[in-house]
Computed example of a mutant assay.
Amino acid sequence: MNTQTPSDPRAQLRALSAVLRRLHKTLVENEMAHFGPAGSAFDQLQLLTSHPQFAWLRQISEILVEIDERLDDKEQPADAAAVQAYKTLIERQLTPDPEAQTEFQQKYLSALQDSPTVAMAHGELRRQLAALPGA
């Protein structure tokens, strides 16, 4: 668990993406365990993309896709503002809002409470976010 943050914004985004990807994988595995046997990798992918039980995880998937696209964008390279924007987006997504309990927040909080593995991945992401430069 490396919480040292490189100063290069592209490297910061890559590190953030890697930690968020590990959390996402852990959440998928946790949800699959509740769902039951899913068959082949293709069957699992179909569940992730189309089954209502997994819909809440798409919010993290979308953030990961956005970060990957930004890292691949040759015309608009990653900069400190992009890193800050993704940091803010992820923090908002993962911080419970008592005023607006979304399905994502309810299921995420439940996974955090029920799975030590999810809690550890969440902690790793929080450390990575805290290590990024502030606004």
Rank of each mutant, 00 (worst) to 15 (best):
R70G: 07
A38M: 02
F42L: 07
P37V: 05
H122Q: 13
T3Y: 11
Q46W: 07
E31L: 10
Q59R: 15
D68L: 00
G123N: 12
R21V: 13
L48Q: 14
Q12K: 01
G39D: 04
L125W: 02
R21Y: 15
L132M: 15
V65S: 07
T102W: 09
A41Q: 06
R92D: 11
L109R: 06
S7K: 12
V83S: 03
A119T: 08
S115K: 08
R70K: 14
E66M: 07
Q46F: 07
L57I: 10
Q53S: 15
P6T: 08
L47M: 03
N30L: 05
Q93Y: 09
D68E: 03
L125I: 03
F54I: 13
E99W: 07
P9I: 01
A119I: 07
R126I: 00
D97M: 00
Q12P: 02
A121G: 02
K74G: 12
E91Q: 10
D97T: 01
N2H: 13
V118W: 00
A81R: 11
Q4T: 15
D72F: 05
S115V: 11
L57V: 09
L94T: 10
A130L: 12
D68M: 00
Q84A: 10
L45F: 03
Q93K: 15
G123H: 08
D43R: 10
G134C: 12
E103A: 14
R126E: 06
P96K: 04
R127K: 09
E75W: 05
L94H: 10
S61N: 10
P98F: 12
L109M: 09
R127E: 07
A33E: 08
H24T: 01
I67Y: 04
F35K: 04
G36C: 08
T49M: 08
G39C: 06
A80D: 03
I60C: 00
E29M: 06
L109D: 07
I90F: 05
I60A: 00
K107T: 15
P98I: 10
A78G: 04
P37L: 10
R14K: 12
P96A: 09
F54Q: 09
L16T: 02
E103Y: 08
S50H: 13
L48N: 11
L71G: 13
Q59K: 13
P6A: 12
A78I: 00
Q113L: 09
L64C: 04
S17R: 05
S40L: 14
P77A: 04
E29I: 02
L23W: 01
S61Q: 11
E124P: 00
L94C: 12
A111N: 01
A18D: 13
R70N: 11
T3A: 12
S61L: 08
H122A: 06
E103G: 11
S110W: 00
T49L: 11
L23T: 02
S50D: 11
L27D: 03
T95G: 09
A111D: 02
S61K: 04
A38I: 02
K107W: 15
L132E: 08
E66F: 04
N30T: 10
D79C: 09
L89Q: 12
M32D: 04
M1P: 15
Q93P: 05
Q53K: 13
R92P: 03
G39A: 06
T49A: 06
D72L: 09
A119K: 12
E75C: 02
R127S: 10
R92V: 04
R21P: 07
